[in-house]
Amino acid sequence: MSSASAALDPAAVRRIARLARIRLADEDVAQLQSELGAILGWIEQLNEVDVSGVDPLASVGSATLTMREDVVTDGDQTEAVLANAPAHSGPFYTVPKVVE
């Protein structure tokens, strides 16, 4: 186990799960803590490589973004857009009430 796993305490594991909207049973925390710790260990090893003066590699394919012209080519498909929604009403998606 690397030093990074020590930095990732059970509270941090729970917090990461909560931010990712993943329900986490108490008995799973320890195992996830160890798995995430192992991943962080790998990252730590990568961090040891000296990359000063090397541009980040964004992609191994074409190096820049292709652009689209400003033309409306899509839309007008309310039914298709709503088709897979767990709930909808008329032209709207519906979700349990979000109270701010």
Binding site: T73, D74, G75, D76, T78, V81, L82, P91
Partner: peptide, 29 residues
């Protein structure tokens, strides 16, 4: 000010019928 959205070809115009200007990109399919 643009005709289409930032990353999709759906219209960016204000005031249309609900969910009529939505591409599958916008709906995160």
């Amino acid at each position: 000010v643009s005709k289409a959205k930032l990353f999709s070809g759906a219209s960016a115009e204000y005031g249309a019928e609900p969910n009529s200007q939505v591409s599958f990109v916008d709906a995160a399919f």
